[in-house]
Nucleic acid binder design. Structure first.
Lengths: 202, 202, 202, 202
DNA sequence: CGTTAATCGAGACGGTACGTCGTGTCTTGTG
DNA sequence: CACAAGACACGACGTACCGTCTCGATTAACG
């Protein structure tokens, strides 16, 4: 499961009818659409195939489980991260944390995260490369802000900045999914940043 | 959905044969047992009913979705929280955070959390009282440790301690469910506690 | 099953709350009503009880199976047989045979007959007294017409008149239920009577 | 319902995997087997499907109600009619009528007839072609006996022989299903034949 | 007049069959 | 070979009835 079959196309010539490469991106796209309409439980291979204009076998041939169908979509969401650092530590942390909250709260792809997490838990074969990296653009960007702060002489040298970033991401997610439907407010984000910075600033 | 029917029993007489109150707790108990054997996807109403010695209709009458069946179990797990504070701030935070990680990682009920969160995410009618309170025993205990620290003059007065506790809980959960199957190690827990305490200690 | 419980009331003292004798006739009545609306398959104890304003247990206490509920109705239909013999053999046979066809074809109770027969077929314990006698009023009346014909010197002495009556009844029923939805027409009834009389008249 | 789907297969290509035509006859066959074991009430789609080595959906796809499942079987029974006419009118009528009584009384498929009739009554869409023809082999054979008798100069020219055949069939069925569990005895069959022949013979 | 006992309505109980739907595989004909 | 279409065996779903039971309330005859 979860293995890429792309190598087949790298090889000389697979003989037979070539794959319809129009279907490759159409399937995840259809998955997200259906998902927005029917919810995660209502997401069906049949519906996705129909929407993508493909047969069920075509979907299965690509080894697309429910989860795989939408992983790409989540990656795409995080790749859309577009908060340009202004240079101001507080301001950048606030903007970026708020972006994370809003992306997970409002974007259709963002709402998938808990479902992916649920599936990943208890399934050691879940495509870890995706779970590995989904936060990466955001994580890296925030870490870069801290590194810049360190360069500017604002941040202590002896702090694991990656861990600090996870503190921020963690509390956003905690409040989103276990916070009785009340995600962090802007003020609470500020408060969290203050708390984190307390142990980070010189 | 999710409405309490208890009031009917409190009222004079609900007419008709009264519900079998032996079955009420038996169903979630059976659900957790089955869940440990078959996993969340493999959890079947039929299996749960059989294990609980009840008919399928009896389960449906209780409006038990898969999730509702196990909410009580999760509450029970958190109620089992039994780390006695020693009085040492570092030590207590470490023990409690480690307990949380282990409970969610190892206990059958703990492994349900992401599934509950996923369900709650898209369902505003999800029994919020449960999501409200599931962390409470743990949260309150950790907050109490901080408060004691404040009393002892170790912790700053101007810090929102509840928010700090959420920082810890958040990072534990983040790494559990989105951390590529690599939960926080004991060393990383220590590291996180250091980071948090940096902004909290006087 | 099928045993009469009437003896209980004949016995000295029933003690306890007496049965609601208003419900006794209400149940078969409700059964026929429901049957006209929902068909035989759709006839459920629940519906009948509801319609009769009774509880399900009240119905079961009377040992009413689906079939028992409606047997009485069929008896009542046949008891309604009201064709007065004119004295003319042909005319009377025609009127009576036509009445039988129409009763079984049009009356709601009449349409039950094949269902009762089907049930009786595989159930040796089926209340035979009812199947015994359901045609009796009709059978007896037609036989009486033949007997009168014999008295009048029209009919042979050496013919089993009861058997001849069954020939007529049989063909009516055959064409009703196995005759591709085309019951005997008036002309065909005449034809059958001619055929039968051919072997009966002097 | 009851519509033939065969035309689709006759047409060029129905696209999609073709129906498993091995299952088509297997389903009624399994139905009769199960029916002999469990009775009509105990006949379950699940059981039939299992016995036929098919899935439940495969049965439903064939639009098989309980009744449709066994229609073919009844046709097969009547096709087994194998009483060779000896040339003697009385003897042949007796043998054939006795065969009919025994087939409906003893053969598992024969016992289905009242259930089919019950279903057909009140369902104008019931596959009439089957009810049309189920008696045909028998009917035609008996009529042929009468025709031969006419050829031999034994039978009157002005009698509707088909109607006479129905008189015989009707009384057999009447006594089978409404005759308080006492089908016609051999002597009674003789008696009925006598009565019928009385109006038929020259 | 209170006790006793069987009835009533209502409705939950453990079961079981229903007909639908989704799964992942397969089997066609057509590129 | 891949493709679309769709049938296949399987099995879970949620509903509906079954026949039984357990309630509180009712309604007599008996003590």
């Amino acid at each position: 499961m979860y293995e890429a079959r792309e190598d087949r196309h790298a090889a000389s010539s697979p003989i037979g009818r070539p794959r319809n490469h129009r279907a490759d991106p159409a399937i995840p796209r259809a998955a997200v659409t259906v998902l927005g309409e029917s919810g995660f439980q209502g997401l069906t291979v049949e519906q996705v195939a129909r929407r993508a204009g493909a047969g069920r076998a075509t979907v299965y041939r690509r080894r697309h489980t429910k989860e795989e169908m939408i992983i790409g979509a989540l990656d795409a969401l995080m790749a859309d991260f577009d908060v340009e650092p202004s240079g101001d530590l507080h301001e950048d942390l606030f903007a970026m944390t708020r972006w994370l909250r809003d992306a997970l709260l409002n974007a259709p792809e963002g709402r998938l995260l808990p479902h992916l997490a649920a599936q990943a838990a208890g399934d050691p074969n879940f495509p870890s490369s995706h779970m590995d990296t989904w936060v990466c653009p955001w994580h890296d960007a925030v870490e870069a802000v801290f590194v810049r702060g360190r360069t500017d002489g604002l941040v202590r040298q002896d702090v694991n900045l990656s861990a600090v970033v996870d503190l921020l991401a963690g509390v956003v997610i905690l409040r989103l999914y276990l916070g009785h439907g009340k995600p962090l407010t802007d003020e609470q984000i500020q408060e969290m940043i203050e708390a984190v910075l307390g142990g980070v600033l010189l």
